[in-house]
């Protein structure tokens, strides 16, 4: 016993353990790497892109073989296609999430849906592009044309099919975040509503969904940001190298987005300007400025999603207390 007590201070005395120090320095460094990469990309694009940035760059159409002018048609196209995309994807995704959380027990069907959603999230984006061409344009579009006798209207690349392809791609994003939002609603609120005599759907509509609104909104914003940044699925389903007009049609005297027209898009614009333009080196400033616009757009969307989620989590936490 005395020997043990004597040896205790020895145990407690800390030798400098180089392995410990090296390990903790290494993981700190490893964590820094992604941040540095993020900073490098943002910094470079900001520095190079801000030179070409001006109000007219944002509001004018490209001119002189895309070596001059602005990128307004690309911004318009990106906005239009993401709006169409979210109109298609949001009801489907939210509905699927409600079914999974509120109606699905752990049945085989629910497990199948979960597996499908997970797999959908992992399908390469170019495969969605192939699917868009093979299914939406050549199968659905051509068959609509045949049925309506419209010649070649639906059976060709256009904004409608690009948006449909993107909505398939963003579906898992919406489902997963909506599920999370629904699960965060306390079970006791559902029980209270049901105990008051409300039916299941009334409970979902009036009790669960209003509380999950924030989470669903976050998911929608994330989906929009993802859709706005994807290029591969729309390469062959509706993007145009250059269009002299906006994809707008007059409907009952009001100008509307024409979903059956092709469109220009920001990320596709960056892609073709860097790889397929006649003189890629000369148009570098335009490429940087376009990239800056795209980054700022997706960055703001993602940031607002992160902040929204933070805010709603905090508020939900207070409620359930």
């Amino acid at each position: 016993m005395p020997e043990l007590l004597l040896s205790l201070p020895k145990l407690r005395s800390r030798k400098i353990d180089w392995v410990e120090i090296a390990s903790s320095l290494t993981v700190r460094f490893f964590t820094l790497v992604p941040l540095l990469v993020l900073l490098a990309i943002l910094g470079k694009v900001f520095i190079e892109g801000s030179g070409r940035m001006s109000w007219s760059f944002l509001t004018e159409a490209p001119a002189e073989g895309m070596t001059q002018g602005g990128i307004f048609p690309c911004i318009f196209g990106t906005a239009a296609v993401t709006v169409l995309m979210i109109i298609m994807a949001l009801p489907l995704g939210v509905g699927a999430a409600i079914y999974l959380v509120e109606y699905g027990s752990s049945s085989l069907l629910v497990r199948m849906i979960r597996a499908a959603v997970n797999n959908l999230a992992g399908v390469p984006s170019i495969v969605f592009g192939l699917f868009g061409v093979g299914f939406f344009i050549l199968f659905v579009g051509r068959n609509i044309d045949r049925a309506l006798q419209t010649g070649l209207l639906f059976g060709q690349p256009c904004m409608l099919w690009a948006a449909a392809t993107l909505s398939v791609l963003t579906l898992p994003v919406i489902i997963v975040s909506t599920e999370e939002a629904l699960n965060a609603v306390p079970q006791s609120h559902r029980a209270a509503s049901l105990a008051l005599g409300a039916t299941k759907w009334q409970t979902i509509r009036d009790v669960v969904l209003p509380q999950a609104r924030g989470g669903i909104l976050t998911g929608a914003i994330l989906a929009i940001s993802r859709g706005a940044g994807e290029t591969a699925p729309i390469l062959f389903t509706g993007c145009a190298y250059f269009l002299p007009r906006l994809p707008v049609v007059e409907f009952l005297g009001i100008p509307m987005i024409n979903p059956l027209d092709q469109f220009m898009e920001l990320s596709y614009h960056i892609f073709i300007m860097t790889t397929q333009s006649i003189n890629a080196q000369a148009t570098r400033p335009i490429q940087y400025a376009t990239t800056l616009v795209l980054i700022v757009l997706t960055f703001l969307l993602n940031l607002s999603a992160v902040l929204l989620r933070f805010y709603f989590r905090k508020r939900l936490g207070r409620i359930s207390l």
Partner: peptide, 17 residues
Amino acid sequence: PTLELLAGIPTVVIGFF
């Protein structure tokens, strides 16, 4: 959240970089 922002950068931007 910073990592999430990194994940949110469009791939075409990384390709361009």
